[in-house]
Structures are given as C-alpha cells and as structure tokens.
Design a protein around this nucleic acid. Structure first.
Lengths: 153, 153
DNA sequence: TTCCCGTTTGTCAAATATGGTCAAAATTAT
DNA sequence: ATAATTTTGACCATATTTGACAAACGGGAA
C-alpha cells in the first residue's frame, strides 16, 4: 500500500476516537521514514475542508500540526454549514468522493447509496461535458441528494 | 491457447472464489510476459458489465486494477439486454422517471434509492446543460446506477 | 526593542510509478 | 481472400515521492 494511504489511515484511525489531534510534522515523517513534505501531501489530498477536516499549524520551536475533524453528524451537526458551503461550488471527482465517503461514515448514506452516488458522479458518466461543468454538476447533484435524503415521506 | 484466454481464465479462476480482486497491471503483465496494454484488452473484451464484471482502477504510485463481480447473471438475460437497450440512448425526464418507477416496482431499488435517483436526474439539477445532453446523460446515469447496485463487493 | 539564529513547517517543481488510449501489425477464423 | 480478433508499442494522463529552497516563529543577544 502506498505511503499516502498508510499515513492517511494512521491519522484517521486516531481521529475516529478523537475530534482533533496534534502532532509534529518531523516526528510523523520519522515514524513513516519519509521526507517531511510527504506529510503535507497527505494533508493536502486527504484532509481537505471538502472532506470535513481542518488543518492548522505553527512553525518554529514547539511547532505543530493540528487536524480537526468537523462533525457532520445529523445528530450533532457541529459544522454542517461547512458541508453546504462546500456544495455550493464545484467538486472534482476526487473531492466528491471525499465528501461521499465522509457522508457514509456519518451515516447519511448506506453503502449501496454511497456506491450509487459515487458511480453517478464519476468521470466516466460525466465525461460528455467539459471539465468545469462536470465539477459544477457534481456539486449540484450532491445538493440534490442531501435534500432528497432529508425528505420525511 | 491465446494470451487473452489464458489471462481471462487466470482471473476468472481467482474470481470463482472471491467477489472481487485487486492486482497491479504491470505485475500481471509480468506474469504473462506481455505488454501492459494487453491487460486492458482482456479487461475490455472479457470483463464488461454485460458479462457480469466491473473494473475500477487507479494510476500513480500504489496504483491498481480492481475487478468486481456483478450479481445480475441470475437476472434473465432478455430482461437485461432490454434494459441496456433502453439505457443506451437518451431519456427525457419523464422517460427516466418511468424507468425508475418500474425498477422500484421490481425491487431493484429501495424507496430511498428511488428518491435519490429521481432527484439527481431531475431537470432542475441538469438544467445547466442543453436538453439533448441532459437526455443522454440521464441514460448514462441510469446505466451506471444499475451497475453500481449490482456490485458484489 | 531590534536583530540574529536555530527550529520547524510550507511550497513547488522534478523525478518516479502507475494505469489508459489508440492504431498499426500480426495472427486466426470464415 | 477477407474479416475479425489479438498483440504490440508509442504516446498520454494521473498519482505519488522526493528534495531544494522559502517562510514563520521564538528566544536570546545587542
């Protein structure tokens, strides 16, 4: 398995039990025997706002990375507004998948529903359009999906 | 025996015991001493959705191919090809809804799944495109949806 | 206070590792 | 002989890994 995914899993494992986490970049790079900038790559591709994470950091002595996991649970919608914010714009396929897997994790979606939406928003399906429109459409689709899921009937 | 068939058999042998399989393209090409693109040929001719398989992949470091079995081999072939026939073209919103409610009747879709799909294929969501494209897209979406729902993994 | 320096993280682009596409060439079937 | 299928290879697209260099912070010296 690739390094990104190992590090991603490691961090997400921790975040499944805590709402945030603080760690030093160099220390983490040391654990995984990689260059420090690898860590930034992980954060930049796997812990984005559209995936429901917030990353803060500080340089210099006593520097650190802090990853905050925003709650999108229906029951405790801590930063649900962030989710809607995300959906007001455009989403690449990767970003959309990030949102979806998080929605699944937060139990907005069953596994079947997750696979369903993932397939519909894949590049393969949307490829008939220019990339910019694809991204805008994905956002609209997800909006519509959430609204549909909130129906009580 | 031709190379395609050897590779086909090899993969299907594995899939007779598992619902899906992940492998690296280069690795597989290495095993059969062929060019990597030969693998794509095998996948494209022997592992299509209508043959009961779906293929996903990822490029770059840690890339892979994933072949997933689909569970509609039990579905009557006639019915299936009818469905594909309908979905090969273009569908207006009305036509799409017709197909959807039929699928719901026949219990391919739960009510939630039905509502989801209906919302995603509505004119409201697709309105950013010209009508002709909308209809073509609906057909593609439905096709992808059916495939996704039949995944066995 | 201001400057300097060690410590720590950030950025960005190049190098590397995969898989995808397409069409020509070779082979096999009709 | 012709058509269909298979095999190959050149070129493309995308994801990851790495390293050189830049920027920010904090504490001590001037």
């Amino acid at each position: 398995m690739s390094l990104v995914r190992q590090i991603e899993n490691y961090l997400k494992e921790i975040l499944s039990e805590q709402t945030f986490l603080e760690i030093q970049r160099n220390e983490l790079a040391e654990v995984f025997q990689c260059v420090p900038s690898q860590i930034n790559y992980v954060l930049g591709t796997r812990f984005t706002p559209s995936q429901g994470y917030l990353v803060e950091s500080r340089r210099g002595g006593g520097g650190y990375l802090r990853i905050v996991k925003l709650s999108w649970k229906k029951t405790e919608p801590d930063r649900l507004s962030d989710l809607f914010e995300v959906l007001s714009g455009a989403l690449t396929q990767q970003e959309a998948e990030g949102v979806l897997s998080r929605l699944k994790e937060e139990e907005w979606l069953s596994n079947r529903e997750y696979q369903l939406l993932r397939a519909l928003m894949s590049r393969e399906v949307l490829d008939m359009m220019d990339a910019e429109y694809q991204d805008a459409l994905r956002a609209k689709m997800l909006q519509a999906a959430l609204i549909a899921l909130c129906r009580e009937d």
